[in-house]
Design a protein around this nucleic acid. Structure first.
Length: 849
RNA sequence: GGGCGAUUAGCGCAGUGGUAGCGCACUUCGUUCACACCGAAGGGGUCACUGGUUCGAACCCAGUAUCGCCCACCA
């Protein structure tokens, strides 16, 4: 049989130039990656793709982890699954607000009236322009759309096989309706509640912050030794880093077993400066080793204060307001004229200024036992904030997540056990977090660009909101904006009037919405047919830094709403570290933008580099590594052209493979197929790549060299060679396709129909040869390597003629060598080839011309 | 303080009981004959340390050290 396939059209000079653009447009036009929604659930592979933060920028870390998921998606697609691979954009929340603020030079001021004709300046001015909430939100929508277009271009260039018809935005109406509906279901089942309570508060952004958004930073501070007075005038000295909270002091506390303070428990002392009588109490959390062993409890200097305040039933004397300044009114308990006068000097001051003044006052009245001793200590910050958090009493909405309820906590821990984790040890991070929860999930935020809490409150005759009985909208009316929509049974004129209603002014935490991505992407209750085919999903890919936020909150929501895990497997990816092994992040300024990498090395090269990072492991960024994939892609072009240039075509794959070398090569390839398949099934794209790549280079360097002379000839030997080349190339392209989709598609297009990405994943049994000595290939390689070595040592070129080769090796290996003798002689350009048998290590004597 | 991970060639990394590997970098040689974004042949490692298990340990066990990450109540 000769090569007659009309589809074979080899390029003169194969090149990678322009291949990305060509394939991106072809895949879009042909809808290569469209989800087949007629598939039953069992035949679907559904992925809960992380929606990138639209206001950020994509960096090389995104390229890394998104590539990992894409290889898995492509593998399952070729295995015949209908792959549900949507993409969303996380565009609600504070990051967007900050970006809009900087990009346009504006500031949201809810007191400003809406200006329909407002246009932002060309360039941001020095002074931020105050604009209405509605204008601000319009700009958020505008800018995120621009950003998302840029992201889409990058993802397409990278070769992500998303189905772009299943896009969502976390701020679009569908996401808003889903988020509000899920929240209202939580409310109706008693899983969400509102409460006035001490709240971690960011004074810059003026919003409450959840436990999951905290981070600790080392900050300089100082111990201040302050003397309280016993009724008899004896001093009791405490150490504090927060002397400015003295007016908020409600008690002193020491460890119950601390002998130094035993006699004080139950007695009272008087605060300096303000003359307030406070009790001395005992509590296990007081650490005898810290400071003087006795601490001042204030409302509230830190989370320990909150614990003490709650467990010891102490009164509230909060003095720090939402702006981070001392409030105007002193606590009622300060009654002395002197105390009230001192307080009035503090009122309105920032925490920092108040601290200085209190220290000065203490010094003047002799209550400062010694000068402040500087220390460095951990201080809690909002992860995006720049000033330490304060604790302020506010009313907020919470969702029960096990933080205050051991039954729910145990259930969430069980979910963590039920989930398959890749890599397995990430399971501990989840358990660690859930076990350490300090309270329920605070989901309300005092911000603008977010999804509104879909509630109103009745106002009583005094205009006070009735928080216990919120007015809940009908699900069909969602999404709603309580700031402009009017609840059923009320008139707009009753807004904010006594006896009328008020809209909840807050928005939901961004995680309250992104915890619903499995519901948003699968169009929960908007498209029940789709939902049933894809939920619960198969895979959640994500970074390990957001196990405590995105992963955990998604598990919570699915447990509460559906009583199930949201997905079967969590694939946790590692970080990209810079060459100094520090995590790359924008704030450190050590990020690498992917666009330059993609254009310099090509998408396949960058993907190859990404796929060489094992699941879950951090990897140091080194642009040198991009060259490996580039070289592979180039090799694939040239080797394919050469193999097909022998005349091998798609039709030849059905020719009988008769030659031992060919049969041994195909059997070795069958082993590779099995290993790669097993690896991919375990999400290990790295091992799949490594096995395929090793085989491919040996295939090029050895098998193709050994067989080329025969393949160019005629007869059964030539037909066998061309069949083996055709089969092997087809399989190799398919094995590589998930990792390097561009070059494989390019080569496939030269000689095959359709997209390589829609072909069946290769099966080992199609390649496995029933009668073959598998040693034929390694023995042939050993022989040709010996000839090459002799030529290299003699410093002659590889194409030099060889007068004769004498091989001496054990009888059974000699038999194998005889099977491939002609191929070796041809490839080595040896005119005579003699095989002797002896029970020694194989030995080759090469006589050069 | 609790938890998790890492430590293998100059650099980046594979290798989980059977003769230490890959890529980059390095050395030498080789381009009309698929590929210079190339090929061939080389050099280079007490597998962090100390014990133990085993016929045999980079691998299993115990401990130590160093680095990194996560968590924990900031006096």
């Amino acid at each position: 049989m000769t090569s007659t396939s009309p589809s074979t059209a080899l390029p003169e000079n194969p090149t990678l130039d322009g291949v990305e653009a060509k394939m991106v447009s072809r895949w879009a036009k042909e809808r290569t990656y469209a989800f087949d929604r007629s598939a039953e659930r069992a035949n679907v592979f559904a992925i809960d793709t992380p929606p990138p933060t639209a206001s950020g920028s994509l960096h090389v870390g995104h390229v890394f982890s998104y590539t990992h998921t894409d290889t898995i998606a492509r593998f399952w697609r070729m295995r015949g699954k209908s792959v549900f691979y949507p993409i969303g954009w996380d565009d609600n929340g504070l990051p967007t607000e900050r970006r809009v603020q900087n990009y346009y030079g504006v500031r949201c001021d809810p007191s400003v009236a809406y200006d329909p004709s407002f246009e932002p300046p060309e360039k941001p001015g020095k002074q931020e322009i105050p604009i209405s909430r509605r204008n601000f939100i319009d700009l958020c929508h505008e800018l995120t759309l621009i950003d998302e277009r840029t992201f889409e271009d990058l993802f397409r260039t990278l070769g992500m096989s998303f189905d772009w018809d299943y896009q969502y935005r976390t701020i679009d109406d569908d996401s808003r309706a889903t988020s509000q509906k899920a929240f209202l279901r939580n409310v109706s089942r008693g899983e969400a509640y509102n409460q006035q309570a001490p709240t971690l508060w960011d004074i810059t952004f003026r919003t409450a912050v959840a436990q999951a958004e905290l981070e600790e930073r080392e900050r300089p501070g100082a111990y201040h030794r302050i003397a309280f007075a016993r009724p008899n005038g004896d001093p009791v000295v405490i150490d504090t880093t927060r002397p400015e909270l003295l007016a908020a002091c409600v008690a002193l506390v020491a460890h119950p077993s601390d002998e130094r303070y035993q006699r004080l428990f139950g007695s009272t002392v008087t605060t300096p400066l303000f003359g307030v009588e406070v009790p001395v109490l005992a509590h296990e959390l007081a650490d005898p080793q810290k400071g003087s062993g006795i601490a001042m409890i204030c409302t509230w200097g830190d989370t320990t204060d909150v614990t003490w305040w709650r467990e010891l039933n102490l009164p509230t004397r909060a003095i720090i307001g939402r702006e981070g300044r001392v409030v105007a009114e002193p606590p009622e308990v300060i009654t002395s004229a002197e105390g009230r006068e001192r307080y009035s000097q503090l009122a309105g001051k920032t925490v920092f200024a108040a601290k200085e003044l209190v220290v000065q006052m203490l010094r003047e009245c002799g209550a400062l036992e010694s000068e402040p001793r500087p220390i460095n200590h951990p201080v809690k910050f909002y992860e995006r904030g720049e000033r330490p958090l304060e604790i302020v009493s506010t009313r907020q909405w919470y969702v029960r997540n096990g933080g205050r309820d051991s039954e729910i906590r145990d259930r969430m821990l069980a979910r963590g056990e039920e989930l398959e984790w890749i890599p397995a040890h990430m399971r501990h991070r989840y358990a660690n977090w859930v076990q350490g929860l300090a309270g329920d999930w605070l989901i309300s935020r005092q911000r603008y660009f977010g999804i509104a809490l879909p509630l109103w409150y009745r106002l009583d005759a005094d205009g006070e909101p009735q928080y216990d009985t919120p007015i809940i909208p009908a699900e069909a009316s969602l999404p709603i904006d309580p700031a402009s929509d009017v609840p059923p049974g009320f008139e707009q004129s009753q807004r904010d009037q006594p006896g009328g209603f008020a809209g909840d002014p807050d928005v939901m935490d961004t995680w309250a919405t992104s915890s619903l991505t499995p519901y948003i992407a699968s169009r929960w209750e908007r498209d029940p047919d789709l939902f049933d085919r894809v939920f619960p999903m198969d895979l959640r890919p994500q970074g390990h830094d957001i196990i405590r936020t995105w992963l955990f909150s998604t598990v919570v929501r699915a447990d509460l709403e559906s009583g199930t895990l949201p997905w079967k497997t969590a694939g946790v990816s590692g970080w990209i570290l810079d060459p100094d092994r520090k995590k790359m992040s924008k704030s450190k300024g050590n990020t690498v933008t992917p666009i330059g990498l993609l254009s310099e090395y090509g998408s396949d090269a960058v993907r190859h580099w990404a796929a060489s990072g094992r699941p879950g492991t951090d990897i140091a960024f080194d642009p040198q590594q991009m060259k490996i994939g580039r070289r592979l892609a180039t090799k694939l072009l040239n080797a394919s052209k050469f193999a097909l240039g022998t005349g091998a075509s798609a039709d030849d794959a059905t020719n009988p493979v008769t030659e031992p070398l060919d049969r041994a090569m195909l059997s070795a390839l069958a082993d590779v197929v099995e290993a790669a398949t097993r690896a991919f099934e375990q999400f290990n794209y790295t091992v799949a790549l490594e096995r395929t790549e090793t085989f491919f280079w040996s295939f090029c360097d050895n098998y193709v060299e050994l067989v080329k002379a025969r393949a160019y000839g005629e007869g059964t030997g030539a037909e066998s060679a061309r069949s083996a080349l055709s089969q092997a190339l087809s399989v190799i392209l398919r094995l590589f396709a998930p990792i390097i989709p561009f070059v494989t598609e390019e080569v496939w297009s030269w000689w095959q129909d359709g997209s390589v990405h829609l072909q069946n994943w290769p099966q080992s049994d199609e390649l496995r040869q029933s009668t073959v000595d598998p040693r034929a290939l390694p023995v042939a390689i050993e022989a040709i390597a010996a000839i090459r070595k002799a030529k290299s040592e003699a410093k002659v070129k590889g194409s030099a003629e060889v007068a004769g080769v004498v091989a001496t090796l054990p009888a059974d290996r000699a038999d194998v060598l005889r099977l491939v003798q002609d191929d070796v002689a041809a490839a080595g350009r040896a005119s005579t080839f003699t095989i002797n048998e002896a029970d020694i290590e194989p030995q080759y004597v090469i006589e050069l011309v």
